[in-house]
Design a protein around this nucleic acid. Structure first.
Lengths: 253, 253
DNA sequence: CGCGTTATTGATCCTTATCAATTCCAGTGG
DNA sequence: CCACTGGAATTGATAAGGATCAATAACGCG
């Protein structure tokens, strides 16, 4: 397998400083069904910085909330750190998705957001977004939609953590990433995982050993092939079927 | 213990058809820091129906999304039903809280919401709320805040389901209910549980047997006393301490 | 007063956590 | 160019927390 063919983000780092109207993500990022003139208005408040390196933070837990961030390329993880210093990963965000929705609640971030690889983001200053939303009904609607979708996604994830087996959790994560990459015309069946086993485990409420074992089992079943972070899904249907199964009816070998 | 002294909702059923400006919940429901004149504007769009009986639905999964609902008295559970007909409880809502935030995502409800006991709600038609939000910046902010808080609450719950023991989950739920009732000057230590063991278990990603056993253990430790749904917390501090402990350091007897 | 629902309690099994030991690989410096 | 090294991943053995299956008890309601 050609390892670098399927990096999560391919171009875009270099093609910096475009505009929202040109951005190939604009149908996704603030799921915008806006008029051209409205897109330009949004464009005028967006700030594009230079790419973040792996490990760089967009914001940290406790930071005051200034902006939402749309991911143009790369991958971001969000997490909160408890009093014992353990980190709890709360989200994985890929191109076209928006981080920072934890901010409006109390005008400060309850999560940290850091880059899992080289990543570029658009900052959307929140006060200006709020103001603009008042003038552009479609934008207001999109913004509320975005938050509501996050709520629904979180509830789905809750369901996953509360009720499903390790197998189902891992399979669901892989399928989720697959589907989200496919929206950008990237391969749905061959890609580089943006997180380590340890991060995946943390996100899924498992241990890294368990995640590793699930990968092992799924490989033995020829459902997928992995080499570290490089992944090929050989049997997408079977992987999907797995996620529909309840804990118990997993017969192996 | 006087069983009915601590019902979740006491008055309010009878005192129907008040206005937002009189409502003792108005500092909580859409965490409104609005001007009086703005409250009146909100009041003008709110629709107050007659109380729901236990088991009545506010809306059902798949219903088109028309309104948010602020709970005035009683208790609501929200849940989604999967293809196998199993229901997954996604939320418990008490007076002053708002249900229906799953709706804006795709203009339809992905959850159902039903009354766990006699309950009265205020309907806030969403289109009118959106329109009003454009005119009243404070209202827009409050609305976005509400959604963002739901996101953060969901993530906390996710953490609970993904990483903590049965003991911690049950204790957290009890403390959450306790704190939310206390906001209305109801007792924080003696109340009637709004849900069955089975609902609690479902919500917490456990089985009802496990929940029952945890109740048993906590009673043996004199931390609380239960009689079916009537609950007295004898040692609030110890219960709180429990939730700070990780899975392993639970030594008993 | 009896029935059906809800809760409790007990015995056993299974999944996953935990502890521990390798193995694999990328990156570094000789 | 290759041996060294440290983090990441895999694999194995064992233990523990809940799930499951099963029986009984307590209550609310007709």
């Amino acid at each position: 397998m050609n390892q670098h063919q399927h990096r999560i983000c391919t171009s875009a780092h270099s093609a910096a400083y475009t505009h929202c109207s040109d951005c190939r993500l604009n149908s996704i990022c603030l799921p915008l069904s806006l008029e051209f003139s409205d897109i330009d208005k949004l464009d005028s408040i967006v700030e594009r910085g230079k790419p973040l390196q792996k490990g760089d933070a967009i914001y940290r837990q406790g930071d005051s909330f200034k902006a939402l961030f749309a991911i143009r390329s790369g991958a971001i993880k969000t997490f909160s750190t408890n009093t014992d210093g353990e980190q709890h990963i709360t989200g994985l965000y890929l191109p076209g998705e928006v981080v920072g929705l934890d901010g409006p609640a109390d005008n400060q971030h309850v999560n940290s957001a850091i880059a899992l690889q080289t990543t570029s983001v658009c900052a959307i200053p929140y006060q200006r977004l709020e103001a603009l939303s008042r003038q552009v009904p479609g934008l207001q609607r999109n913004l509320l939609q975005l938050l509501s979708r996050e709520i629904n996604a979180d509830q789905k994830q809750r369901n996953l953590l509360g009720r499903t087996s390790a197998e189902v959790r891992v399979a669901s994560l892989l399928l989720s990433i697959s589907a989200r990459l496919a929206r950008h015309n990237l391969s749905a069946v061959a890609f580089t995982l943006p997180m380590s086993r340890s991060d995946m485990a943390n996100f899924l409420g498992l241990t890294l050993e368990t995640v590793s074992r699930v990968f092992g089992r799924l490989q033995k079943l020829k459902i997928l092939s992995t080499n570290r972070k490089d992944l090929v899904i050989n049997d997408l249907e079977q992987l999907q079927a797995l996620t529909h199964k309840s804990c118990k009816d997993n017969f192996d070998d």
